[in-house]
Amino acid sequence: MSKWLPKSAAARRWLGLTPAYVMIGIFMLVPISIMAVYSFLEPNPYGGVLPEPSVAAYVKLFLEYDLEDNLVFNPGYINIIFRSFQLSIMATVICLVMGFPVAYYITLQPENKRNIYIYLITIPFWTNLLIRTFAWIIILGRGGVIETPLLNLGIIDDSLKMMYTDGAIAIGLTYSYLPLMVLPIYASLEKLDFRLLEAASDLYSSRFQIMTKVVIPLCKPGIVAGCILVFIPCIGAFIAPNLLGGGKKLMLGSLVQFQFASARNWPFGSALSMLLLSAVVVALIFYARSARKKEYIQGTA
């Protein structure tokens, strides 16, 4: 390009990619590797770690020492992990049920209207998650937007106690990541050739069958992508369980944060992070597989 750049294409290439490698490599890959190492060390009670190898952090997931120093099964953390998956899957399913008809409806609209709807769905996603979750405290909370009119009308005579429940967390998660479900489904529906629906109808399919036999199979990659995109941030969520679960109904994300911010058990926090990371990797492998299948279908078409 200019005189001061190396001549060979390969040298230029690596020179150009170096800043990205340095930033993401040093400040992402290396930290995660260090974290992996820390998960196998002893905790330092004042924060940080002691340089002694140990699997205590992973043992702590299942077992604890009782008063007589015997290792006994402790379901506490397993329950939190289980709840994390349960709530994440629940939020993902609700997002799918809510989002699919909307994505489909948008696809049916003329182009200018489609753009407006997509804009409307994108906007909340780009606005602050903390603020959007906070809004739900005002809605669900004691004396909030839902309760107050009901109390005033005498329909209920005590707080509904909607806050600090699994339900509140599920609503918060759903609300947080709903756009991530609609957008990929819309993207795949948009490419759908609507003449296929007419062909199916011509070949004696009912409306229900058109949906189940043609539309859903053809936009499955979009559905899978949407589910993965919602599931991954849900499983690591911190804000929704923290604000709407009140720090009592913990999820994996808030548990990790707790280990670093308050409990000062870095190895255990690291171990939990590794667990979180492996859940994400599994989800991504699942996604890559279905994407490959999609390529296969398109390749033979």
Partner: peptide
Amino acid sequence: ASLGLMMLPLMVPEIVTAVAVLIFFAT
């Protein structure tokens, strides 16, 4: 691999990035 590296920060859950970077800076 370069492409994957570029997109890596999108795939790692934020809380994991947060604590990993915290550990790194502390170390």
